[in-house]
Amino acid sequence: MPREAEPSLNEKQFILQALQENLRLDGRQLDQYRPLELTFGDEYGVAQVSLGKTKVFAKASAEVTVPYTDRPLDGVFTIMTELSPMASPAFEVNRPNETEVLLSRLLEKTVRRSGALDTESLCLVAGQKCWSVRVDVHVLSHDGNVIDASCLAVVAALRHFRKSDTSMEGGVLTVYTPAEREPVPLGWLHSPFCVTWSFFGDEGETAVLDATRAEEQIRVGSCTISLNRHGEICQIAKLGGTPVEAVALLQCTSLALTKVKEFSTVLDRKLAEDSKRRDKSGRAAELTAENDR
């Protein structure tokens, strides 16, 4: 199994020394993200997020399937993650390493288990037919903090996604093409985002946001906090590493909330811009079959 190239002793020492003096190699503040870029594709449900040199691509898609027998009233929702050798030579195809397993687990906990997507609205015929929504996450380039970027990409892709409109008449299910009826958005309840803190120093006293790859390689611990802009925490993952003071963690959580609010604003703005770009005729409002919730 290929191993990632480790930073040299000089680099390790220097990055730690600089962090002690509140300096980062790219001139950022300790709690500052790299420039965030979010773009949507021509198709519905395609989103690409870049945080500095980290790039993540997410694509949402839906098809009609049979629901699980133990959950006849729910649709199916899956998130597939893939870290290909394109992102880093340390990744292999079909051999998930720790990063990939943790990433898919965290996305699962943040987006799926927090009930961000209303899976009941995906049900078409109880016990017989439902929508299966699937998001594929591809990490195109890995320069640290893949988790936050992936989570943002998944949420953006799902919020941007439109599934085909359907109707039930006399026991016959009709799925309309986009030409026949305007596709409808998914039943979306809240938008959770991940914020990852990295800890440095002997007792994890220096907390840093949006660590680059070099910083990730020498950190003593990390903590991923998922929450939405109302401050509702979906999960906190502190997987091993040096123990961190509870008070420091509380501070991290409250700072995470401000970051999440920023993400939320950016996403809302980008979605509005995108829908404006698509709505050339200005008739999207009357074409839509969507009802106000």
Binding site: N10, F14, Q17, A18, E21, L23, R24, L25, D26, G27
Partner: peptide
Amino acid sequence: WVGSESTKTIVLVGRALK
């Protein structure tokens, strides 16, 4: 490789190069 007494200087040289 950039060496200096001051950490700030090294960071600055690194950013300039990058």
